[in-house]
């Protein structure tokens, strides 16, 4: 397969995943902002946290508003990673390797892109929420077309690899932001507000029911962290993403008959997941743990780039 084709597939996977994540973050933030709290400026903190989740904490200066954050993350032409930009980029990448996609997958991606114009840029909150619903439906359609129609060969592996790397990044940032930005000072971890916030976030990543099934307990921060970091049944957890990354890298190595730095890096990290417990992660500091995870994810992405995509 052409390196350029692999690269475009990998980035198609990443951008679709990112569009979905942004839609979910925005939805969660709209709900979080509606939770009554005590102090002033809470709404601003909540909307600033959405920017932090999207990895652009300082994009809008000191006091982001609901309107400015919504526009920036969903539509802004100044934001290379807005939802519209992600869908457009995914489509541009897909179009440049049209022949590597099934008709169904291409139609799903092209359909999302065509739909952007029809959707417009709604400003009213309920219209905006409908837009987010639509984005999630589109990414599900892409996901369905990928899993139901794509040949299981290197093209598919690169699509999946991009999605897994992106998803790992997103989950890690979500966790970090929740723990270190969102909860106002003086609020107790495990307190009432904390509880609402977690419930909302879990719902948005489609994990609230999963949580109850897995832990059969009320929402507790350390269990949520366990779910999102170490639990392999949870498809968004860091461990699950890492399992996918290893899986597709090994399939590629099998097809091509050669293992490289990317495989070694990924296997190494997998071993560390196997030996991790949530207690020790908390002891060493979740924030530090996540920063290290993000840096390592970046190195792995670079290794994949060098080994296959350049």
């Amino acid at each position: 397969m052409l390196s350029r084709t692999a690269d475009a597939l990998y980035w198609t996977g990443r951008y679709i995943e990112r569009a979905d994540f942004l839609a979910r973050i925005l939805e969660a933030t709209i709900r979080l902002a509606a939770i009554p709290t005590r102090g002033d400026g809470d709404a601003e903190t909540v909307w600033a946290s959405a920017l932090a989740c999207a990895s652009v904490p300082k994009a809008l200066g000191r006091s982001p508003t609901e309107k400015s954050v919504r526009d920036f993350l969903a539509f802004s032409p100044d934001n290379a990673s807005s939802i519209t930009a992600c869908i457009t980029r995914a489509r541009t990448n897909a179009r440049s390797v049209r022949t590597a996609l099934t008709t169904e997958l291409w139609e799903a991606i092209n359909g999302a892109w065509n739909g952007l114009a029809e959707q417009g840029q709604p400003t009213r909150r309920d219209d905006f929420t409908r837009f987010l619903e639509w984005v999630k439906a589109m990414t599900l359609a892409v996901e369905g077309a990928t899993s139901r129609t794509m040949l299981r060969n290197d093209g598919y592996y690169f699509l999946r690899l991009g999605a897994a790397i992106e998803r790992a990044d997103n989950t890690a940032r979500l966790l970090d932001v929740k723990y270190h930005l969102l909860l106002p000072e003086g609020e107790r971890v495990g307190g009432q507000l904390d509880y609402f916030q977690w419930t909302t976030l879990l719902r948005e990543v489609s994990a609230l029911t999963a949580y109850r099934w897995v832990y059969r307990d009320s929402v507790k921060p350390w269990l949520v962290a366990d779910l999102l970091v170490l639990n392999r049944q949870m498809p968004r957890s860091l461990a699950s993403c890492q399992t996918s990354i290893v899986h597709y890298l090994e399939l590629l190595a099998g097809d091509y008959g050669r293992r490289g730095p990317a495989q070694r890096l990924a296997a190494d990290r997998m071993r560390r997941f196997d030996n991790s417990r949530i207690e020790s992660i908390f002891q060493a500091g979740l924030h530090e743990y996540i920063l290290a995870f993000l840096a390592e994810n970046g190195r792995l992405a670079q290794a994949i780039q060098d080994q296959y995509l350049a």
Partner: peptide
């Protein structure tokens, strides 16, 4: 389907860059 940057010439022969 290749673009110019996918091809290169080495030792008088034409190659494409693949994974």
């Amino acid at each position: 389907l290749v673009e110019g940057r996918d091809l290169f010439v080495d030792d008088g022969k034409v190659f494409m860059r693949t994974t």
